[in-house]
Amino acid sequence: MLLIRCPYCQQTLPELEFTYAGQAHVARPDAANKQISDEEWRDFLFIRTNVKGPHYERWRHAHGCGRFFNAVRDTVSDRFLITYKVEDPRPELSDLLEKSE
């Protein structure tokens, strides 16, 4: 069982408290104000990266504060490189890898 740090609670807690919520940084196109092509909408709905290695993804502290947050997790080792708030900028992978060395 993984231990995951909730960036809102600032606590490292058992995986049981969290649920996975898919790839991160997939923004919903602004269909209210713009013409969105079928391809764009398809990509938003279905096209995901399926990374082998560091993966930007979302988790929810479902049995805690309830917040969705972002994380970078290595899909090979299952290690979290970082978790960060939804409103925080997407961290650069090179910085993360440097730090984890």
Partner: peptide, 9 residues
């Protein structure tokens, strides 16, 4: 969960 997802993110 879906409502929270849209509301929060």
């Amino acid at each position: 969960n879906m409502m929270e997802d849209y509301l929060q993110t």
